[in-house]
Design a protein around this nucleic acid. Structure first.
Lengths: 153, 153
DNA sequence: TTTATATTGATAATACATATCAATTTCGCA
DNA sequence: TGCGAAATTGATATGTATTATCAATATAAA
């Protein structure tokens, strides 16, 4: 099995456990949204609108609100993360590796989003949290600027 | 002159230069909003609504949209920064020291916002940007978790 | 002062997100 | 298997933050 397929299965398991722990129900709609999200949006940052439009093509009966609600469930269950890059829309991203946090560089010119991870930053943050007796749950780091293509000559 | 008063004067100068460079005009409203913002909101993170309510008490004639527009000018001119802590409202904060970036720890329980600065993080980010041929313009770092008071026993 | 242009403030419009609610689906339990 | 309580769905209404519109006004250059 490919690592990606393995990961997808792991997330599925986590989500199913979340569903049963919270006494929620599994539905066809949630299955469809899960498959689309974890099938086509790995490493991307999709808006609710985009995901909805995409799903509607194959499954016209699925409603907008359901996509919203389901993505929120993905976040609550810890299999997706929500981001805000300042354009007013929430973006969702499948979580690949629970341990290794990654971050984003956003080009203010072309809007492209680049990812990076850095152990040194992570350990800094852990230290800072510890120093302030803060129990770290999550963190977000974004760099804004010009990417190599847009910074020009 | 106190350091705070000095800083306020520096920001005023920067803003005036911005105004004349962009061929904008200085107005009584902008003066009032500047004084209120830099007088009472140092080190705080005020929403447009809050600042508007505050100003309206002393200057009932000043409109909501003007406060919005003026805060945006403050951001564009580099004397204020805009933040988003996930509650859907934009928050503005006077910039104290242009060189030393600071960041935020947000308690997910009580909502209190703590600030911190860290040189090691800054230099990491500069390195990362350089490595990716990215021209760093700005960055945001937020830690979410439980503060010492809320993490309980 | 004159004149062009920016600004203001009231309000309309937009956009993203959430709430409502009747109809439907799920699932534990007999 | 079928019943019934409870969750979910989807269409749509509502809420909330922000931006656009525009006539009246203020500013600043000539």
């Amino acid at each position: 099995m490919t690592p990606v397929a393995q990961m997808k299965m792991d997330r599925r398991k986590t989500f199913n456990e979340f569903i049963s722990r919270k006494r929620l129900k599994s539905t066809k709609q949630r299955d469809v949204i899960f498959d689309e999200f974890f099938g086509n949006y790995m490493g991307r940052h999709v808006t609710v609108e985009e995901l909805y439009e995409d799903i509607k093509r194959k499954y016209p009966h699925i409603g907008f609100a359901t996509v919203y609600r389901t993505l929120k469930l993905f976040r609550e269950s810890g299999i997706a993360s929500e981001r805000n890059f300042g354009d007013g829309k929430s973006r969702y991203e499948p979580i690949r590796d629970e341990r290794e946090h990654h971050h984003h560089m956003i080009c203010t010119e072309c809007g492209k989003i680049y990812e990076f991870a850095n152990n040194q930053v992570e350990s800094c943050l852990n230290q800072i949290a510890k120093l302030n007796e803060f129990k770290l749950e999550n963190h977000k780091l974004e760099i804004y600027g010009l990417c190599s293509e847009c910074r020009g000559s």
